[in-house]
C-alpha cells in the first residue's frame, strides 16, 4: 500500500512539472513571436535610416514615393490621416459603446440581454472587407447625397466614411469587454447603494461605473488600437489619396492603407521598400503606446481603490 502511494505521488509530481514546462514554453513562444515581429520590422526598416532623409520622413508633408525625379517620403499626411480616422471613429464609437454597455448590463431585461450580447459579439465577427464593401458602395453614396445641394463632402470617398465603419467594428469589442467589467462589479455594492435610497441610475453612475472603470478604460484603448491597425476598411473606403489635411470629408490615406497598397508594387530592397517597413515600425510604436496607456490607466484607477 505504501509503495503504491509513492508511485501515484511521483506520477502526480511528474504531471505537475510537465504542465508547468509546457505552459512556460507556450507563453515564452508568444513573447518570442512579438520580439521576432519587432526585430523583423527593425531589420528591414534599418536601411531606411541611412538611405532616406529621416528629418524629411518625420516632418515632410508630401508622400510621393514613386516620383521619378525626386521621390518624397514625408509621412505626415499618412500619420494625420491615421489620427483623423481613429479619432473620429473613437468619437463615434465610445458614446455608442458605453451607452450600449450600460443598457445591456443595467437596464435590459435578462431575456433581452441573452439575445443581444451574442448578437453584438457576432457583429465583431463580420469580415472587415464586407464592411469596407458596404462603405464603398452604399454609405459613401448616402453621405454624398444626404444634404445635396446644400452640402457635399469634398471627396466621394473620404476619411469620415472609413471612420464610421471603423466605429462599427470598435463598438462590439468595446461592449463585450466593458460589459464583462460592469458585470463583475459585485451585487453587494449595488445593493449597498440602493439600500441607501439611491435610484438605479445614481447607483449605476456613481458606484457601478467607477468600480468597473479600469475594465472600461482597457476596453476603449483596445478598440482604439483595433481602429489604428485596421486596414481593409480604410483601403476601400477612405479614398486612398495621401494628402495632408485634417478635413475628415476629404480623401486620406492612413499608414495601414499605404503599406497594404504600396507593398505589393514596390521593388524589393529600394528606399521605398525600406520606408514602408519604417512606417510599419511607427504603427507598431503607436499601438504599443496605446496598450501602455491602457495599462497605466488601469493601474492608476485600481490602485486608488485597493
Amino acid at each position: 500500500m505504501a509503495y503504491k502511494q509513492r508511485v501515484t505521488a511521483r506520477r502526480r509530481k511528474l504531471y505537475d512539472q510537465s504542465v508547468f514546462v509546457i505552459l512556460t514554453i507556450v507563453s515564452t513562444f508568444a513573447i518570442l513571436v512579438l520580439g521576432a515581429v519587432g526585430g523583423f520590422l527593425l531589420l528591414n526598416a534599418y536601411p531606411a535610416f541611412s538611405q532616406v532623409d529621416q528629418w524629411q520622413f518625420f516632418t515632410g508633408t508630401v508622400w510621393d514615393p514613386t516620383n521619378p525625379i525626386e521621390p518624397l517620403y514625408g509621412m505626415l499626411p499618412l500619420l494625420v490621416a491615421t489620427l483623423v480616422v481613429s479619432a473620429i471613429s473613437a468619437l463615434i464609437a465610445i458614446p455608442i459603446g458605453l451607452g450600449a454597455t450600460i443598457y445591456l448590463s443595467e437596464i435590459a431585461h435578462p431575456r433581452i440581454r441573452k439575445i443581444m450580447k451574442p448578437a453584438v459579439e457576432v457583429l465583431a465577427g463580420i469580415p472587415s472587407v464586407v464592411l469596407g464593401f458596404f462603405a464603398l458602395t452604399v454609405f459613401a453614396k448616402f453621405v454624398w447625397d444626404l444634404f445635396y445641394p446644400a452640402w457635399r463632402p469634398d471627396d466621394y470617398l473620404n476619411m469620415f466614411n472609413g471612420a464610421v465603419f471603423l466605429a462599427i467594428m470598435m463598438v462590439p469589442i468595446m461592449v463585450s469587454l466593458s460589459e464583462d467589467a460592469m458585470n463583475s462589479v459585485p451585487r453587494s455594492l449595488k445593493e449597498a447603494s440602493l439600500a441607501l435610497g439611491m435610484t438605479r441610475w445614481e447607483t449605476t453612475w456613481k458606484v457601478v461605473i467607477p468600480a468597473a472603470r479600469p475594465g472600461i478604460v482597457a476596453a476603449i484603448m483596445l478598440s482604439i488600437g483595433r481602429a489604428v491597425g485596421e486596414t481593409m476598411v480604410v483601403v476601400m473606403a477612405t479614398g486612398s489619396a495621401p494628402q495632408l489635411t485634417w478635413n475628415p470629408f476629404s480623401s486620406g490615406q492612413p499608414i495601414t492603407s499605404t503599406i497594404a497598397i504600396e507593398m505589393g508594387e514596390v521593388a524589393a530592397n529600394t528606399p521605398h521598400y525600406y520606408v514602408l517597413f519604417e512606417l510599419g515600425l511607427v504603427l507598431f510604436v503607436i499601438t504599443f503606446a496605446l496598450n501602455y496607456v491602457a495599462d497605466w490607466a488601469m493601474r492608476k484607477y485600481s490602485e486608488r481603490y485597493q
Partner: peptide, 18 residues
C-alpha cells in the same frame, strides 16, 4: 427610494464602496 432612506440596511458581508 424614500422607503429605503427611512429604513436603512446593513448586510451580511461588509460591503464598503471602493
Amino acid at each position: 427610494v424614500e422607503v429605503r432612506k427611512r429604513i436603512g440596511m446593513v448586510f451580511q458581508k461588509p460591503n464598503p464602496f471602493p
